[in-house]
Design a protein around this nucleic acid. Structure first.
Lengths: 254, 254
DNA sequence: ATTCAAAACAACATTTAGCAACATATTTTT
DNA sequence: AAAAATATGTTGCTAAATGTTGTTTTGAAT
């Protein structure tokens, strides 16, 4: 890594954003040189480049959580609205963490007098602002990238409640292995939420069905008879063994 | 995503709503440019647009809470930045709920490797997204209007930790009665945070000094010798008994 | 409905950034 | 020391972003 590359990186990360011209003046080289140095950096994903300036990929640009929320946003919104339609005013819910769940929380702001338990501080914060809701934050120590708790206290809070719906998401879905997640702790929380709920609502967008499982993934508990799966597009026939068509709800894309 | 788009997004999400003209002044560009940048954002559904202004789609906050956040906003931002300057990377903090504290959390995103305990889900969520931070959410059941917890669990979590700074706010300040709050539970949390901290940083904007206490208010614990009070304007001489000038930090209005 | 002011829009002019090709300087290799 | 590889600066051109002006639309108040 060149000397200039190092300086550019620390400057852009320090300031969050910096123009090409500013960098050229600071390092006392031409604009063109900055562009030449930056191009490979951008390709490596170390910095983000926009017309005229660089943007740090760290911290200042809103959290990676929001970045994930913007990925396949339209589908997630459609699914979230559909999930909110399945829920009546006054219901009790358990909601896990995850980008789709974030949108579900947004959509659920339309509902009144909900009782919610979640291990995500973001979702807890969002839904606690709605007049009439009762919100329980499960857990104390928050995980770094998404602000969710997976500690002992989280399980204790969840286990102390009973809810009608558990609203969960998965990182990918495999035709025979079922719903998958990355971390054991996520599966444990999902199981705890399933255990206290009468019905599970799985919210998964179409990209999750095609995700080739290059990363090692762990299996989530199997669906129960009255559980439902909300998707934005109907998955292929390969998944009909896993998900009974009766359980499938396809969100109407607006 | 352009640099301006990034800034617009964070501004509108922070404030809930912002006018086109305000944005143009803040980013130092013409109204027309703002409109041009915003149009595709709106089409992507990232923000909502009404005649004259933008509205956040990520309604993290309830209107009343938002209204309090926006009241005397400039002063609160100045105070928040000042508080963030008093804190070093790697520090440990307790932060209470309140509109000023919300801005302090925003400002603290600049700091690295903080350990934070708070009873506000909003603040916990905000700061847990910062890489390297350790965040503890104190409490389980969240109060409706601001998403903060005041239950037994909140006290237990706070009491189990020790921090360098307690960052607190007050609803008003009286020359002889001191710092005041509305609810006993807020005072109890403040005391718990003071008890585990080496130093208290009180953040209060100038309007708090003139608030005629028509509402019944309760007294917060008195300042300790090395505590500090961060304000945006120096309070009148009437307060010199309450706050030693040495303890007073006046935030530089930008 | 009528009126008015603010906001939005459209079209053009201007500025600024990006890029490619070449020239020059610097370092590395042989 | 000569040659090759690399890095940097320069120029001219293209593309993108922004500002300006004038016109149309919108929302609110009569």
């Amino acid at each position: 890594m060149s000397k200039h590359e190092q300086e550019i990186l620390s400057l852009v990360n320090l300031r969050g954003t910096i123009t090409v011209v500013e960098l050229a003046q600071t390092l006392d080289v031409s604009d063109q040189t900055i562009r030449r140095i930056v191009k490979p950096m951008e390709e490596r994903g170390v910095v983000r480049k926009v017309h005229g300036a660089l943007i740090s990929t760290q911290e200042v640009m809103d959290p990676p959580f929001l970045a994930r929320m913007n990925k396949n946003r339209a589908a997630k919104v459609a699914i979230a609205n559909c999930v909110a339609d399945l829920v009546q005013d006054g219901s009790s819910l358990a909601i896990d963490t995850g980008s789709t769940s974030g949108y579900v929380a947004q959509a659920l702001r339309r509902r009144k007098n909900l009782t919610i338990v979640t291990n995500s501080a973001y979702i807890a914060s969002t839904l606690s602002m709605v007049e009439g809701n009762r919100v329980f934050m499960a857990g104390t120590q928050l995980r770094n990238h998404d602000g969710a708790a997976f500690d002992r206290a989280a399980f204790d809070v969840i286990a102390s409640l009973t809810v009608q719906h558990a609203i969960l998401s998965a990182s990918s879905v495999h035709p025979t292995r079922g719903f998958l997640a990355f971390d054991q702790c996520e599966i444990d929380i999902a199981r705890a939420m399933i255990d206290i709920s009468a019905r599970t609502v799985m919210a998964v967008d179409a990209t999750k069905f095609s995700a080739s499982g290059s990363l090692p993934s762990l299996r989530m508990p199997e669906l129960r008879a009255n559980d439902v799966v909300v998707v934005d597009q109907s998955p292929g026939a390969a998944f009909s063994d896993l998900i009974d068509p009766k359980q499938l709800v396809v969100a109407a894309g607006q």
